[in-house]
């Protein structure tokens, strides 16, 4: 069970959280083309390595936040609040 540091509540067990998929995917307005809309709905990076992803502390404070997780090791490099940019951390740099 992962130990995930909620930016508000600190480290908590994974069962308190719900996964929310890849982060930083902006929802386009209704004026975009079909292709752009399809990309928003369905195209994901399937990263091997450090992935920015969304989590919700659904059985805690209820807040959504982002995490940088290395998909090869499950190591979580950092977590950060929604609306803030992706931190520039590479695997090996995090504490």
């Amino acid at each position: 069970m992962l130990l995930i540091a909620c930016p508000y509540c600190g480290p908590r067990a994974e069962i308190e959280f719900a996964y929310g998929g890849e982060a930083h995917i902006a929802r386009p307005g209704p004026g975009v083309t079909e292709e752009e809309w399809a990309a928003f709905l369905y195209l994901r990076d399937n990263t091997k390595g450090v992935l920015a992803e969304r989590w919700r502390h659904s059985h805690g404070c209820g807040r959504f936040f982002n995490a940088l997780r290395d998909t090869r090791t499950d190591r979580i490099l950092t977590t950060y609040e929604m609306g803030t940019p992706r931190p520039d951390i590479k695997e090996g740099e995090a504490a």
């Binding site: 719900a18 929802r27 969304r54 919700r56």
Partner: peptide, 13 residues
């Protein structure tokens, strides 16, 4: 409720 919170917190904060 989760979907409402999702849009509210991430798209329409």
């Amino acid at each position: 409720l989760n979907m409402m919170e999702d849009y509210l917190q991430t798209e329409w904060a």
